[in-house]
Design a protein around this nucleic acid. Sequence first.
DNA 1: AGCGTCACGGTTGAC
DNA 2: GGGTCAACCGTGACG
Length: 182
Amino acid sequence: MMRPTLAQNYPRSGFPLEGRVNQLGGVFINGRPLPNHIRHKIVEMAHHGIRPCVISRQLRVSHGCVSKILCRYQETGSIRPGAIGGSKPKGTTPDVEKRIEEYKREHPGMFSWEIRDKLLKDGICDRNSVPSVSSISRTMRSKFGGRGDEEEDEEELERKESEENDRRAKHSIEGILGDRCE
DNA sequence: AGCGTCACGGTTGAC
DNA sequence: GGGTCAACCGTGACG
């Protein structure tokens, strides 16, 4: 009762995490996003015209955080935290990867260095951003290597993309809550 | 008093 | 399997 059920908010951790207490007396976990219900509450209260400073005090969340979440909600329509962790694809962005897939599909015999050349020629990348030959071949290995179902991969990618866009277009709390429990 | 912004210490996860 | 590193997190402080 002193602490919210943190394990419930962070089911992936598998064990109850220790929360820390901020100046307002609110519980937070350093480095981790605020629980979804708090984020939702912030947006909901703002919707009702409640001022950020009041939200901050009432929910015991720093005003910097309230400001950030509200700001992001206005921009993206989403209350969800950004993707934490992971690293950028080294050398190849998803966009470039897609191009590589296209090239490869059109010309299955194409070499990595040829693809690299074409990326430059087509203006997909400039000399600074173009991935290395080894990076391209790694991408191809991971995309085409061993499995012949790359079209399914792409299909799924596009499906996810359109789902995401759809979700953003709604800009409604209900839409967000709908997929909250993943 | 309220708000925007940023440095900080922290976590995460693809590479 | 473990290390690296760049993304994100919320707090707290400053203007």
